[in-house]
Write a protein that binds this DNA or RNA. Structure first.
Length: 354
DNA sequence: AATGCGGGGCC
DNA sequence: GGCCCAGCATT
């Protein structure tokens, strides 16, 4: 009898949640909750692979509220995959400017060209995964939502839901924990309706099982949640330490002459912000004569915080890497967010075009 | 396994 | 003003 009780304790946590009867109950409860409570989002009106693909790429690391204005506009500019495949660099980056992670836009066009060449949108998990910019999460999302493929999605929302549901105390940044959670997600997946099930899991994480102050009292899975029973819902999931923030002081130079402003364009294949237009910095204009400080602002990128000083300068002769750009053409160019912030503050740009 | 890639919301 | 969020590609 001692053996029996120790056997029960040895069971991994996910086994306590994922008994066949509980799995069935969780799937049904979750599905009912989702059908009654799901938000009405633009990409939930369709199963068209082009639409779903674009929405999933835009939603990588990006909040729903930030994506919505870009989503509608994107299809006006690129009504078909073929149109996207032929997009110019400027059109592509302009459509994405402000969304961040610009390699997503570049990969989008590369993938569009692959799809055009293949003649149809890939319809299996493996073929979708082979598209540039598509990883395991996005492939599972598209395959399940558009093609009913039984692949469980594991994004940040689902990791949080599952870490709490199974009281998994592993670091979700580690690949071991992620593998365990992927296994949990696949076990729980309702293969009869993977599109709805996957979206229900993500929706639960987005609106109920939130990072801070989860709304457990409203959660359809409350009675199955091992973290809640243990009072650990606010401690899970565990996330390891990240790199410390570094502060860096930088200057931007504003030279305006005859209705033109001096700018430079980053190389299209640059690792960071490739193809974007920028204000020059002092090392690019060594002989510029500083006139005065026009504006100060800060801008955070990943683990850096930049404190920018925007200076008005006069230039006698400009390096060939810089270009005099007509002020009235600025809104047609992909401007980096830093440059846009500076030019908006100086009223060189009349209003935010993004 | 570790790092870089934006931008925005919350406290 | 600092802290948190988190897919994919690259190394």
């Amino acid at each position: 009898m001692k053996m029996e009780s120790s056997n029960v304790q040895v069971l991994p946590n996910y086994m306590k949640v994922f008994t066949p009867a509980r799995v069935r109950a969780i799937r049904r409860t979750l599905g009912t909750w989702y059908r009654l409570n799901k938000r009405d989002l633009p990409w939930r009106q369709t199963r068209d692979p082009y639409r779903i693909w674009i929405s999933e790429i835009m939603l990588q690391q990006t909040r729903v509220a930030a994506v919505i204005p870009y989503y509608q506009r994107f299809f006006q500019q690129f009504p078909s995959i073929a149109a996207l495949a032929e997009a110019s660099d400027d059109a592509l980056l302009s459509a994405w400017a402000g969304l961040g992670y610009y390699s997503r836009a570049r990969n989008l066009r590369a993938a569009a060209r692959k799809i055009v060449e293949a003649g149809a949108f890939p319809a299996t998990f493996d073929d979708i995964l082979a598209l540039p910019g598509v990883g395991p999460y996005t492939a599972a999302a598209i395959a399940s939502i558009c093609f009913d493929a039984p692949h469980a999605v594991l994004d940040g929302n689902v990791m949080r839901v599952l870490a709490r549901l199974t009281r998994n105390k592993g670091d979700i940044l580690s690949s071991r924990t992620r593998a365990a959670l992927q296994e949990s997600a696949q076990t729980l997946l309702d293969a009869g309706s993977p599109a709805e099930h996957n979206q229900a899991m993500m929706e639960l994480g987005a609106v109920i099982c939130t990072p801070r102050d989860p709304a457990c009292e409203e959660c359809p899975l409350l009675k199955y949640c091992l973290a809640r029973v243990a009072g650990l819902e606010s401690e899970l999931p565990i996330k390891g330490r990240r790199a410390e923030i570094r502060r860096v002081r930088r200057s931007l130079l504003v030279a305006i002459r005859n209705g033109n402003i001096l700018l430079w364009q980053r190389a299209q294949d640059a690792a960071m912000l490739g193809g974007f237009w920028e204000l020059p910095e002092p090392h690019q204009l060594p002989e510029a004569k500083t006139a005065k400080l026009l504006h100060k602002f800060s801008h955070a990128i990943t683990n850096h915080v930049y404190d920018f000083h925007v200076m008005a300068v006069r230039v006698s002769q400009e390096p060939s890497t810089l270009q005099w750009t007509p002020l009235n053409q600025l809104s047609a160019l992909p401007l980096s967010t830093v440059t846009r912030k500076a030019l908006l503050a100086l009223r060189v740009l009349p209003y935010d075009t993004t």
